[in-house]
Amino acid sequence: MSELSVRFAGIPFKNPVTVASGTFAFGREYVDFFDLSRLGGIAVKGLTYTERQGNRPPRIAETPMGMLNSIGLQNPGYRAFIETELPWLRRFDTVLIANITGATPREYAEMAEALGGAGLDLIEINVSCPNVKEGGALFGASAGGITEVVTACRRATDAKLMVKLSPNVTDIAEMAKAAEAAGADALSLINTLLGMRIDIATRRPILGNNLGGLSGPAVRPVAVRMVYQVAQAVRLPILGMGGIATADDALEFLLAGATAVAVGTATIVDPLAPIRVLEGLERHLHSTGESVGDIIGAVQMN
């Protein structure tokens, strides 16, 4: 088992397989399927300063080997999370990752401070949700915006900060450098790619919110490319995600330079997907005799 463990931003993970924010709620729906303590980490549903009801339906549209979503961060607010969900989640022996989206740098900072104070291992700063109008992706769309939010959070807490980067930018490496310079401890990527589907009969977008974020296997090559580019540009550890459904997919991200991975949309299809990825990874390492660390960033370019 030990060959699976990694250190990520100084935090020991028993294995590099986590579940991505927004695809796992607060974990309660999955205890019927497997022991959550088997996961390397759990990124909980995106939290906002106050409760949000989310966007009007339809919120989901299938695409070729992918899906568009426009949930719109429906969540009870970060205080309710700390009071009602966190005590329950603590029973599991896994790294807990909060995910926060603020309308202003100040909201981000207050949430980071409170969640750090509540003992969260890692705080994922979401500057890349494409489905909310205020804040979120607006900050992630420019290096200046990222600097502003990360600086505010860094001042507010000593907790480990991980910035979730948007793929909807011209040069993701520039965004990664801005996060590193502002004091981030880690990066996670990619969030969803902004997309749209149109119902040709009604001539209207399928999603109630018109646009949505694309995820699933369809985005995987884009995500692997971005993880590689970011890994070349910064020294921060990377939590790689984007369409991971199998151990082979996870290995691609590790080879590209990710230290850990997150399974997201695959869990929506198969509740056991994170465990299948983990077990497949275990088998692979057993067969090659390597540890996870041997694989991270081991891609040999042509």
Binding site: A25, E29, Y30, R56, P57, N69, T267, P271
Partner: peptide
Amino acid sequence: DERMGCGLGACLGCAVK
């Protein structure tokens, strides 16, 4: 009926007001 994701209440896709 609504366009649905996980079916378990986790992804919050199949919203109804």
